[in-house]
């Protein structure tokens, strides 16, 4: 089965491990992620001002691509891309006037009808593949580790695009349980990592990372699993800065859920992109 896939910028650079692991896992489950032709930047952050339509053109244009190429749904891996594309789509379908304007801004394109579904890989795994089916394909026992699932913000908020309950989500836990992995009840799983403040207010991100990773470790986690390249970067790479400030701080690997799936489903570890992880998840790689 083929599904159109929107990568976004970071999946092609720092987060290649997210992309390659997702491709491997989906292949194993009988799905092919078909990269959208001529995709462009989603804008990364959804524009929130009432008078700002122009920034909604970029995400909508990607949905036009899906239509052009004969699709009616598109899956994303990056939580930021998911949020931006989905919010733009929801907005487009809620405001007739804005819809006409956006279509007229894109005069070289076919008109968009609002009929492309924006999905995140997690919901595809739950609703199309089925966690039960994934469970049946598990070949490596991972019952020796405890995982802290980390959702971040953009899969859960705002409510119009949430893939799960904003306060007590469970989709990632359900997936991890299907893989035979134990999870911790992680109160910070839906707390912000500090996001793009990593560029100009790094102190904030260091503080967030210290708290989030620290609590995960306190609660007995061996690894944190995430689905956003920016969360992954902040929580993992910024641990070095945390360590400089708090020498007693103990590091914890932060990986993509697809990498963990790959290990459980028996994809050879060298094909899961762990070389791009700064803190190696040794508990997984030495199986």
């Amino acid at each position: 089965m083929k599904i159109f896939y929107y990568p976004g910028c970071t999946l092609k650079t720092q987060a290649r491990n997210f992309e390659c692991s997702a491709m491997e896992v989906m292949k194993l489950l009988g799905y092919e992620l078909v990269e959208l032709n001529r995709w462009n930047c989603c804008g990364t952050v959804y524009s929130l001002a009432s008078d700002d339509l122009i920034h909604k053109v970029a995400p909508i244009r990607n949905l036009v691509r899906v239509k052009e190429q004969g699709g009616d749904k598109v899956v994303t891996l990056c939580a930021m891309c998911y949020n931006t594309l989905k919010q733009a789509n929801v907005f487009f379908n809620s405001d007739q006037e804005a819809r006409d304007k956006i279509n007229s801004f894109m005069d070289t394109e076919i008109d968009y009808e609002g009929d492309v579904e924006v999905l995140h890989l997690l919901t595809v795994l739950r609703d199309e593949v089925g966690f039960d089916n994934i469970s049946k394909k598990v070949v490596r026992k991972l019952n020796h580790i405890k995982v802290a699932p980390y959702y971040g913000c953009l899969l859960l908020r705002p409510s119009t695009v949430a893939i799960d309950d904003a306060e007590n989500p469970s989709i990632m836990e359900e997936l991890l349980h299907a893989l035979g992995v134990e999870t911790i009840d992680f109160p910070y799983r839906n707390e912000c990592c500090g996001t793009y403040n990593t560029v100009s207010a790094v102190d904030l991100v260091i503080d967030r990372t210290y708290r989030i990773v620290g609590l995960a470790r306190n609660l007995g986690a061996d690894v944190i699993v995430t689905s956003c390249p920016l969360c992954q970067f902040n929580l993992e790479v910024r641990q070095k800065d945390v360590k400089e400030r708090f020498p007693e701080f103990e590091q914890l690997p932060v990986i993509y859920f697809t990498q963990l799936m790959g290990v459980a489903l028996g994809v050879p570890t060298e094909r899961l992109g762990f070389e791009l992880n700064h803190i190696k998840p040794k508990v997984l790689m030495e199986l």
């Binding site: 009840d185 109160p187 910070y188 609590l215 306190n218």
Partner: peptide, 9 residues
């Protein structure tokens, strides 16, 4: 108003 409550240790 309290925004969130969680258990730790």
């Amino acid at each position: 108003k309290v925004s969130k409550i969680y258990e730790d240790n």
